[in-house]
């Protein structure tokens, strides 16, 4: 699919993201671009540019593009300072050894901030003097965990959920935010998140928010409702709606008309009919795993070599979803004798 077809522009950014899978770093913004190297799961990356569904980054001195679908926001930076309490009157020394000069004495019971440690010594500052104290005379501050400061910008709702004026259920609702809406995260308190939504800025219970968008799955062939592979989705959806993808062709193999695949085209007027399957949050992971397995799709293998690739597509209403597109090599092979479905609708393929 071309970026132009998606109507997505470039954005220069400075983001920190974490890989959610082993992820190919490619020379270009396409799955057909050469794989430079594979970045392991849970690797923190600096993103410098975002174009469409692709993010530019550098790993092991190699620059390239990775699919944004496999990135999540980096967790909040661990606070560099840890609060401790002195258990005795404690000497603050210039260096981390007992022979070092004593700068001053810190009274017992004083809360200090430890910024680093070295062996049995902790670095801190007290009354504008920085130095080292023996860690043996420090204890943790009970009941006060380091504040977590989520660095995430967005959350996605996992159900139709009230956004309230305050962080309790007795606060009035500003309205119901629909399932899978992207909301802007502001802060959190007592299991609630303050967010900016289409219903206004308010509070949503954090248990109804996810840090990653849960995309629907757009299906077009035997996975459609009532078709032979629909059993993989039955009972796992919260909503099923028909829509279209533009700039795609649908093909069938001659005499093998149960088997269909779609491939991008530069002709924007070509459309395929898809059923957008919104998956229940509790079924999302298992449903996607089942579909991947069924289509023999493995994100960790070369995409061009597979029958199908699960990719993000945008429907004619601008909504994104996953779809299983024909892998580039097999699509090229099969389309030489394939039949294009003029209607773009698998149910009207004859």
């Amino acid at each position: 699919m071309t970026l132009a077809a998606l109507g997505i522009g470039a954005t220069t950014v400075k983001l920190t993201k974490v890989t959610t899978n082993n992820l190919n770093l490619r020379s270009g913004r396409s799955t057909s671009s050469a794989v430079i190297l594979t970045i392991p799961q849970n690797t923190k990356l600096s993103i410098t540019e975002v174009i469409g569904d692709w993010s530019k980054t550098t790993h092991k001195n190699k620059s390239g593009w990775v699919s944004s679908a496999y990135l999540k926001n980096a967790p909040a930076t661990t606070p560099t300072a840890v609060k401790k309490i002195t258990t005795n009157n404690l000497n603050l020394r210039q260096a981390n050894c007992t022979s070092s000069k004593i700068l001053l004495s810190i009274p017992k019971g004083t809360t200090i901030s430890v910024t680093s440690t070295s062996g049995t010594w902790s670095k801190t500052s007290y009354k504008s003097r920085s130095g080292w104290v023996a860690s043996a005379y420090l204890k943790n501050v009970t009941g006060s965990k380091p504040p977590t400061k989520p660095s995430l910008s967005y959350r996605w709702t996992t159900a139709n959920v009230n956004v309230r004026k305050g962080n309790r259920t007795h606060y009035a609702s500003l309205g119901v935010v629909p399932f899978n809406e992207r909301v802007t995260y502001i802060s959190s308190s007592s299991g609630w998140s303050k967010v900016k939504t289409t219903k206004g800025t308010g509070w949503i219970s954090s248990k109804y928010l996810k840090t990653n968008e849960q995309y629907a799955v757009s299906v077009y062939g035997t996975l459609r409702k009532g078709q032979s592979a629909y059993h993989l989705l039955r009972g796992r959806t919260v909503k099923e709606s028909t829509t279209k993808l533009s700039a795609f062709n649908m093909y069938l193999k001659p005499n093998q008309t149960w088997w269909s695949f779609i491939v991008p085209t530069t002709t924007k007027s070509r459309t395929v009919v898809v059923e957008r399957m919104d998956i229940k949050p509790e079924s999302y992971k298992s449903a996607l795993a089942s579909l991947d397995k069924w289509e023999r799709y493995d994100a960790n293998k070369p995409l061009a070599d597979q029958n199908y690739n699960r990719k993000i597509v945008t429907d004619i209403n601008g909504r994104k979803s996953w779809a299983y597109l024909g892998g580039s090599k097999i699509s090229k092979y099969l389309t030489q004798n394939g039949i294009r479905v003029n209607s773009g609708d698998y149910l009207k393929r004859y």
């Binding site: 005499n255 149960w258 088997w259 069924w294």
Partner: peptide
């Protein structure tokens, strides 16, 4: 030449199957 079917497609784990190319 028509030797495929939905059930044939659904057979066996990917690790046992021949790659597509």
């Amino acid at each position: 030449k028509n030797l495929t079917s939905e059930t044939a497609w659904g057979c066996l784990d990917d690790s046992a199957l021949l790659p597509a190319v």
